[in-house]
């Protein structure tokens, strides 16, 4: 049969048969072996290791995340080929740092690892993007930017994704953002309705930007008249 060779999960030797976790302790318990390996490899960049409800969280120096993730991905003794999620947490206690969370899975070793990067209050909300290692990070990081305002340096196209580009109220998942938004309902509706639903030719995102002069006249006109705004 032609086609791809199937990648099998859990092919590493001597893995226990997977089973539903039972009686998981709140704290403590066996940590993911990758945590030790990370400590050995990266030393100071690994701040602490917690095991909470059976899941291993490794707090890292956020600025080093790309190196760490690249090693986890490439090294055959780890092979975290699968990026599950990129997200962030801001606590109600505003003095606590904002956490950026990466959830990784190793399909081969059947492991789950949580990386945490802390951004102390007052520091710029910026961490390196892991897009270079995982293409799946593209939209996840854009969403995180959209909701928290965290910039992922090195991301190829960091724009708002869920809200529209001119959204003026801020970053909704930050704790200082009120549940109903900052503006009155009428003002929110006015701003939303004044967006042009046909605006779809954004020069930055289309490769026709080079060929602008050759476009049909009407399209050129429309692009000139404010339809270059993305949303």
């Amino acid at each position: 049969m032609s086609g791809f060779t199937v990648i099998r999960a859990g092919t590493a030797p001597d893995l226990p048969t997977p089973a539903t976790p039972k009686r998981v302790p709140h704290r403590g318990g066996a940590a993911n072996p990758s945590a030790e390996a990370l400590k050995a490899r990266f030393g100071d960049a690994i701040r602490r290791v917690d095991v909470v409800w059976g899941e291993t969280s490794v707090t890292i120096d956020a600025a080093k995340v790309l190196d760490i993730v690249r090693w986890l991905h490439d090294d055959t003794s780890q092979s975290y080929e699968y990026l599950v999620d990129v997200t962030a947490v801001e606590f109600r206690d505003r003095a606590l740092p904002i956490e950026v969370i990466w959830h990784l899975r190793s399909i081969k070793y059947r492991r789950f690892l949580r990386l945490k990067g802390l951004i102390e209050k007052g520091n710029p909300l910026s961490v390196p993007s892991v897009w270079a290692v995982y293409k799946g990070a593209d939209w996840l990081e854009r969403e995180c930017y959209d909701m928290f305002g965290i910039t992922f340096t090195g991301h190829p196209d960091l724009r708002r994704i869920l809200l529209w580009e001119q959204y003026a109220e801020g970053f909704p998942l930050r704790k200082d953002f009120p549940l109903r938004g900052r503006f009155s309902r009428a003002e929110q509706l006015r701003q939303a309705l004044s967006a042009n639903p046909e605006a779809r030719y954004s020069m930055e995102e289309l490769s026709i930007a080079d060929a602008f002069a050759e476009l049909p006249l009407d399209m050129r006109e429309r692009i000139k008249h404010g339809e270059s705004t993305g949303e």
Binding site: V6, I7, R8, A9, P18, P21, I107, R110
Partner: peptide, 14 residues
């Protein structure tokens, strides 16, 4: 695409 990863098998619950 030929990756036999299924959460029910590899990280089971229930």
């Amino acid at each position: 695409s030929g990756v036999d990863y299924d959460v029910r098998k590899d990280f089971p619950y229930l």
